[in-house]
Design a protein around this nucleic acid. Sequence first.
DNA 1: CTAGGGTTAG
Length: 502
Amino acid sequence: MSARSFSFQSGFCLSFGFSSTAHKVFDKSPQRHGHEAVASFVQGNVLGKKPTKYELCSALNCCAKTLNSHLGSQIHGKIVHSGFDQNLYINSSLVNVYTKCGSMGDAMKVFNGMEVHDEVSWTSMICGLSQNGQGGEALCLFKEMMTTLVRPNCVTYVSVISACTEQESVFRCGELLDAHVIMLGHESNSFVVSSLIDYYSKCGRMDKVVMLFGSCLASDDVVLNTMISAYTRNQQGEEALKVFVKMRDANASLSEHTLTSVLDACGALTVLQMGKQVHGLVTKMGSDQNTFVVGALINMYSKCGDIDEACHVFDQAGYKNNILWTSLITAYAQSGRGPDALRIFDHLVMEKRFYPDHVCFTVVLTACNHSGLLDKGISYFKKMTSDYNLAPEIDQYACLIDLYARKGDLNSAKKVMEEMPFDANAVMWSSFLSSCKEYGNVELGREAAYKLFELEPHSPVPYLILADLYAGAGLWDGVKNIRKLMNENGVRKSLAGWSCVG
DNA sequence: CTAGGGTTAG
């Protein structure tokens, strides 16, 4: 354990910070007793008592709970003056306060100023980076921790696994961390299990998910909530509902996370009756003002084709925020009423009632795509940067590529793929390839197909589309060559499991 | 003797 320093890598993921923090902070309503404890600390302070290190620590905890960075930094000053500025407990708390409030610079300053670190102080900083959308930095710091004599524990792994889950650039590290966890015998910790289940479900590795679920006690409610969303995410809504029904029948504690996830499952299965039952439960539990729950209700009703009820739920919500407005716009967009969705968006923007974020733009751009309003979509994309100072993320670039490609402007689509700050993925190349086929562009289609041969080496789809493209152009040698290529690369011609044929 | 970090939801 020696003095150390750490600097941010040139901010390649700074743009992720805001949106993910914003929603994590959302439901952390200040705790009443937290306020009381802070108040009593401040009162003691005013009366001139010198706080003990224990009192300082508790006060910092309350600041973290209530997201009060102002009081936190006042206490920070007190700490420096009272000579506790190398206390491990206090500094870990301080790092926690600053990261919870999104003051990453201050957190880093405290962390770097510590002469000695233990597993908790390392974990506080790693976790803080992860929760602020800086998963890459979180992993860097974890690697640095591994070079010291301090060993990570369960909490460290939970933080770093969730960092991998949310950040594409370090996504593949998750499996390695799983191996660590097993080696160290942490796989029975329910926090670790739920973070791993979440990770694998987002990789589409349901085999791993089911294995993890089977080998844990399965009574932890967060694990169960995670399973409901894992099944839903991977098109196994029936299984998701089974988990929920089991929870309900076992009198497990149902939270707003549970309601949100199970409503998602109902929407995916379009089972309106079940959805209405859950809606009843929402009312009974008094969760009808929780943004996530209300958003999920709107989504469920619109997926079940009941747009009127979706609007009714929206109207009933007392407080309308970005998430709810976005849910409403999504509801119209996915009910085949793209132009209505755009009208609501334009109206809100004009009246400055809300500032759209990345998620909202994805909905708007998708709506344009589905309604064939391609030029309109392109101009919305441009507005992201010009009017809202939002750096487009990979999802919005995917929409833009789609917009250009569907229009037949294949060169612009390709230019976006080459110049955007992300690597074009298989989904993008696939939709590009489909458009190449649509417009009979052999040259670009070939390029896209060969890219896909690398990105999805087992999929027959790009081979078949390219063969189609060649056939359409009368290039029969090319068609023959594709068959040869498939044999050479061991690609099976069966389309089973490859649903997205262009 | 008292104190610090964690999972799930658009």
